[in-house]
Design a protein around this nucleic acid. Structure first.
Lengths: 128, 128
DNA sequence: CAGCATCCGATTAGATACTG
DNA sequence: CAGTATCTAATCGGATGCTG
């Protein structure tokens, strides 16, 4: 692969890695997708309570963007009080196996990473 | 899975999804890992030029964190001018297939996502 | 209940200047 | 060349108040 082609591949918005990172690199999208995958249909308040430390604002924003992109479906029941249910779309479900690949890698290697980080920090300290 | 257990799974720092997101959800780590995977050994300036729009500061910070976690090796040659080469470690290489799974999904579905987003926005506009 | 609007503090990242 | 240090601008996300 020539340097010239490289530039086109890695820069700008056409780079597929950047596209995926831009879409899913935020704090909550992946977590909500995986939660909906495991629990199926969930209400707004159920998602909020399960995650625990997400603010109402961020849950709203994240769900809206997932809905906007067709990854999650939103069903509104005009009862009193109103009820809203969220569920993965087929598109959203198709992403789940890939997320779980990454999660699996994390479970296998994250302890090593944390230990590496600790050792690196220790070395850095003894130099100063 | 009971509600009680759910809380423990999805909250806090033991959640494996959050661990992976915390580590790799930043703007540059994944991109640099994939770049090093495809190009092998690269100098600091080669990475900078290939990516194009990363600042010197962020490249330094990201490479240092990747090195710290044992995902990338750094070799320093005390010549004048100095030369530094970065390369994936075995640990870093073990992550690459999973990244490429995600990238593959992105290439297959990102156009659909963007179109969904456009349609959603259009619907939103016509309501106002 | 499930949102939206606004404000504001915290974190992040770019620009710039300097160095072994 | 490959950084470090500092300052500043932009972004992100939490808290609060209000609504159908």
């Amino acid at each position: 692969m020539s340097k010239k082609r490289l530039g086109n591949v890695w820069m700008g918005e056409t780079c597929p890695i950047r596209q995926v990172l831009d879409r899913f690199g935020d704090k909550w999208s992946i977590l909500i997708i995986e939660l909906l995958s495991q629990e199926g249909k969930l209400r707004f308040s159920e998602i909020a309570q399960t995650i625990g430390d997400i603010s109402q604002k961020m849950l709203t924003v994240t769900l809206r963007s997932l809905e906007s992109d067709g990854l999650v479906t939103r069903r509104f029941y005009p009862e009193i009080p109103p009820r809203v249910e969220y569920e993965l779309s087929d598109l959203g479900r198709s992403l789940v196996p890939h997320i779980e690949q990454l999660t699996g890698w994390g479970q296998a290697h994250m302890a090593t990473i944390m230990e590496n980080r600790r050792l690196f920090e220790a070395k850095r300290m003894e130099k100063n």
